[in-house]
Design a protein around this nucleic acid. Structure first.
Lengths: 188, 188
DNA sequence: AAAATTTTTCCGTAATTGTGGAATCTTTTA
DNA sequence: TAAAAGATTCCACAATTACGGAAAAATTTT
């Protein structure tokens, strides 16, 4: 690794310049398209200035690049993070009254992971955001649960199925006694 | 759409605030973690200031949120899609005594498909070979089944899980009364 | 090669971000 | 209910971004 670990920002100038040159545009051309002054574009490309998100957003529109991908680690190793955070093959997750059985093989890590989860009465599984674009799908086998993802929520009974984004904070609560669910975590 | 079209930036303040509150942190706590002053965090959360990417980056680190996803237009996020038991598409497999409910969304066709299958006593699901490299994984919820793939076979009871090649002829039989299983078809 | 054109960088100025402390509002405790 | 503690917002000042025109550098044309 020749890069400083947490200095992803240092890669941004080069990527912006590359995007501009790839389209054969001059600083002035980009300035007209984006509404950002030539001087500013120059400074940003040279790493002499840290733009506000507003100006950077305008630049991405003019250059037709994806804002999200612009700051991402291209050769991403973030899958490892997702694993050790919340996919721990532990029996009792955070002592919240839920038993987790991992049904998917280890080699599926990063693919589609499958869990069989049993909740004690009032048990809960509260998760921090997973990697970007990850979705979860669960089916209630027994009991009732309340699913919350971001600011949205839904109540499920036996046989019901829910799908929701898992790249935001999300949680599953047993709302009426014990419960059992089938959970599938789908990587993007 | 009740949102202004190209003003994705307007969503950022709320998302940041939500991320902070989700972790039960005060402005000062975030300030200490991120190195950004309390006042600034407040202004950003209220949309009164457009932060530089440097400060926003520091905030995302402190809040443990994904920088890229923060500004993305995720229309399906913040929404829990619930499929009631009665409205899940199902197919009655040719009078073979098995009812198949399809839990995976149509857009997942060709990806990983998920089924909830109920067998009547002595019911069976006999399948021709799928595409090359396709694997199936099933977990028994109730009853007992015998799984056969090619020339191999295995007997499962409640809670047991089996994985096997599905690119050869394979079958699932209910061996002791009614049964219910969860089946996942994994494309190569 | 020199001139002309284009592109980029430099520089002074206006606008906005970012900071620390006081004031206001909210929640907790007695 | 009053007091205390905590969190958030307001305010004046420092630092940086952002802009427009001039100088410098690079590219193209004659």
């Amino acid at each position: 690794m020749t890069d400083e670990p947490d200095d992803i920002l240092s890669k941004l100038p080069a990527r912006l310049k590359e995007a501009r040159r790839a389209q054969g545009l001059s600083l002035e051309a980009v300035a007209n398209l984006s509404g950002v002054s030539r001087s500013m574009v120059s400074q940003i490309e040279r790493g002499e200035s840290s733009p506000t998100i507003a100006t950077l957003w305008n630049l991405t529109r003019a250059l037709q690049v994806d804002f999200a991908g612009l700051l991402e680690d291209r050769d991403n190793a973030d899958r490892v993070e997702v694993l050790r955070q919340s996919e721990v093959p532990s029996i009792d997750n955070m002592g919240k009254g839920c038993l987790i059985r991992i049904l998917s093989p280890p080699e599926d890590a990063g693919g589609h992971e499958v869990y069989d989860i049993r909740f004690e009465p009032d048990g809960a599984l509260i998760s921090q955001p997973h990697g970007r674009g990850v979705q979860e799908q669960l089916t209630v086998l027994e009991g009732s649960v309340r699913v919350a993802s971001g600011s949205a929520a839904g109540d499920l009974g036996p046989g019901d199925t829910a799908r929701y984004a898992a790249d935001v904070a999300h949680s599953i609560h047993a709302t009426d006694g014990a419960a059992r669910i089938f959970l599938i975590v789908k990587q993007a």
